[in-house]
Amino acid sequence: MQEERMKQELGGGAVFPIGEENRAFAPYFTGECYLNRLTTQGVSIGNVTFAPGTINAYHIHHKGGQILLVTGGRGWYQEEGKPARELHPGDVVNIPPEVKHWHGAARDSWFQHLAVEIPAEGASNEWLEFLAPEEYDKLP
């Protein structure tokens, strides 16, 4: 079963089911991605699973920001104009509002994180362009 294989590759941190294929946001991802909304009450938390080589487009969280809690695999986070940061289980990324960034899986690894949306009045997400493929290819 594919989910069991993914969990094995993600390691012990893959404690939540991967959820359904993330079709609603598919235009903003370069490949296969799954979303399991754990809660939408008070604070929205989603378990996001990226197939190897899948990243999301640059985007901005207006007003509220986001926190990523890495639970499995190996991935990347990058703010525009800064070096990419390699991510591993246990890493925490605090993304302030209005910061243009992308995140996703390393080329050779499944990647999973909990995405915590910081509530704020009038909060929204703005999806932008993708990282240039040649820039992603430079990452180890």
Rank of each mutant, 00 (worst) to 15 (best):
G11C: 02
E129W: 08
R107F: 02
T49W: 01
V99H: 12
R23I: 15
S44L: 14
T39G: 03
P83K: 09
E80Q: 15
P83L: 05
V48Y: 08
K138C: 02
L139M: 10
D91V: 02
A105G: 01
P119I: 06
R74L: 04
K7N: 14
R74C: 02
A51F: 00
E134G: 08
H101F: 12
V116W: 02
F29T: 01
V70I: 13
P89K: 07
H88Y: 13
E126I: 10
L69T: 13
G13K: 04
G72T: 01
V99C: 10
H103R: 04
H59I: 12
T30G: 04
W127R: 10
G104Y: 03
I55F: 06
F16D: 02
L38S: 06
E134V: 14
L128A: 13
V43L: 07
Q2R: 12
L131Q: 14
T39R: 04
H88R: 15
H103A: 03
N47H: 13
I55D: 01
P83Q: 09
E4S: 12
P89A: 05
E98K: 08
W76G: 05
G53C: 00
P119R: 06
E20C: 06
S44K: 13
E86S: 08
V116K: 04
V116P: 03
E79S: 11
V93Q: 06
L114N: 05
H113C: 06
E80T: 12
M6C: 10
A57S: 14
L10V: 03
W102L: 13
Q66A: 07
W110N: 00
E4F: 02
L68W: 05
I118C: 14
P52E: 01
L38W: 07
K100H: 11
